[in-house]
Computed example of a mutant assay.
Amino acid sequence: MSDEEEDYMSDKFLAGLQEVRPSLVQDRGKKRQIEVETKKEEQRKRQREATAAAGTVDNARLQQSLSQPLSADNKGFQLLAKMGYKAGAGLGKQPDARKEPVGITIKSGRGGLGREAAIAELAAKRQELRRAHLLQRAGIESGAEISTEAYRRRATQKAEERKLQYDIRRCQQTCESLDLKADVTEPDLEFFWPPKPKEEENSDAEGEQDPPEEEETPKEELYTPAEQLELLTGYLRTAYSFCYWCGTHYEDSADLDSNCPGLTRDDH
Rank of each mutant, 00 (worst) to 15 (best):
T56S: 12
D210I: 12
S65C: 08
Y244S: 04
E190W: 02
E41G: 04
A118S: 01
T233I: 11
E141M: 04
S147V: 07
D179C: 06
E4K: 13
G112F: 00
G143Q: 12
G76W: 13
A144Y: 10
Q63L: 05
T185Y: 04
D210Y: 05
E5R: 02
I106M: 12
L80N: 10
A52K: 00
A81Q: 15
N202C: 02
D257P: 00
K107H: 12
L66C: 14
G114M: 08
G114A: 09
Q68T: 13
R110M: 03
S147M: 09
R126T: 00
K30M: 10
P101Y: 05
Q94A: 05
D267G: 06
A50V: 14
P69C: 02
A182W: 03
A81R: 15
D210H: 04
D266I: 01
A155L: 08
R46E: 14
E227A: 11
Q63T: 11
E215Q: 06
L129P: 05
K93C: 01
Y166H: 02
S65V: 08
K99A: 10
H133K: 04
L80G: 08
W193G: 07
E215W: 05
Q78G: 05
G76I: 05
A54Q: 14
T56C: 11
L70S: 06
R153V: 05
R44Q: 07
T217M: 13
E149M: 14
E5M: 01
Q18E: 00
A120C: 03
E100L: 12
K163F: 13
P69G: 01
K99L: 12
S23T: 09
L135I: 12
E161S: 08
Q127R: 12
V36C: 02
Y151C: 09
H249Y: 01
E35W: 09
V57G: 13
E214H: 10
Y235N: 10
G16F: 02
A138M: 12
G114V: 05
G16R: 13
D188W: 01
P211F: 02
I104E: 07
A117L: 03
F192D: 07
T248E: 14
S67D: 15
P197N: 07
L70R: 09
R152Q: 03
R110E: 06
G143E: 11
A117Y: 06
G139E: 01
E4W: 11
E121G: 00
K12H: 12
T224G: 02
D73S: 09
P197A: 05
R61Y: 11
A117I: 13
Q136P: 03
K12P: 14
E227F: 05
P218M: 13
E201N: 01
T233K: 13
S67W: 07
